[in-house]
């Protein structure tokens, strides 16, 4: 009978995750799986909503990268309303979008470093002993 180790949830990262390591009887790993299984059904339930609601709806696909999804939807709207032919998008509009995206990078990196990985570097003592992970 195969043995299995489950690491759940994957921590110190932003978002959900689970890892399962499948081993045969004498402990050799034959398969490892990373589970990101949050199926919500956006593809179906977004249909029928007014199109200008799309950015506000899809930004809630992920709480860490809402801006990316928001901008993806905004670009899709560019095509619908005819602003997507490059010069159709005003320079200011394009710069606003880049600024928003950089803001998200900046926030995400700072958060990951100061909140999630800094305990290992700065407060080594409080980092939880491996046995409990």
């Amino acid at each position: 009978m195969s043995k299995k180790i489950t690491i759940e949830p994957v921590t110190r990262v932003e978002g959900h995750g689970k890892v399962t390591i499948h081993m045969d009887n004498n402990g050799n790993v034959y398969q490892t799986r990373l589970h990101i299984v949050e199926f919500r059904g956006f593809e179906r339930f977004v249909q029928g909503r007014p199109y200008w609601e799309a950015p506000v709806l899809v930004q809630r696909l992920c709480g860490i990268c809402p801006v990316s999804h928001h901008l993806a939807a905004a670009k899709a709207l560019d095509v619908i309303v005819g602003a997507g032919t490059g010069e159709g998008l005003t320079p200011t509009g394009e710069k606003m979008r880049r600024l928003m995206h950089y803001g998200q990078f900046f926030q995400s990196h700072a958060l990951h470093f100061f909140h999630l990985s800094s305990p290992d570097f700065l407060l080594v003592s409080t980092a939880t002993p491996p046995s409990e992970t």
Partner: peptide, 11 residues
């Protein structure tokens, strides 16, 4: 237990 530390089960 929380995604922002390493404790994966209630201790």
């Amino acid at each position: 237990k929380s995604p922002i530390d390493d404790i994966k089960k209630f201790t």
